[in-house]
């Protein structure tokens, strides 16, 4: 049924992962950086599921499920931090979070 080679799935997953990483590196808006993190985790999930399908191993689906929960928890904390940062700084510009340095 699956005629698409595994390497295609992996390429897609890796691409998503890389796009997410680039987002975290380049976007100053903390919300968008958070979204990029989610894209990374989605890439990971895709890789997991692709491997699972190609190995015919369903138990990893449970692992991906747990990863989803973790991702959600991470977003919750991240957004909370963004809000707190906004209150504190009046901005969620990551560039402005650079008082500590050296």
């Amino acid at each position: 049924m699956t005629n698409i080679p595994l390497s295609h799935w992996l390429a897609l997953a890796t691409a998503l992962f890389a796009i997410g990483t680039i987002g975290v590196i380049t976007r100053r808006n903390m919300l968008i950086a958070l979204m990029s993190l989610e894209i990374m985790l989605n890439g990971v999930g895709l890789a997991f599921l692709a491997f699972a399908r190609f190995r015919g191993d369903v138990s990893v689906h449970a692992a991906v499920f747990i990863v989803m929960a973790v991702a959600a928890a991470e977003v919750a904390i991240g957004l909370a931090l963004a809000i707190a940062m906004y209150r504190n700084n009046g901005s969620i510009d990551l560039d402005q979070a650079s008082r500590l340095k050296g």
């Binding site: 699956t2 999930g45 599921l49 699972a52 689906h61 499920f65």
Partner: peptide
């Protein structure tokens, strides 16, 4: 995901 037969996910 559906294409990977991961219906629940």
């Amino acid at each position: 995901f559906v294409m990977l037969s991961a219906h629940l996910l």
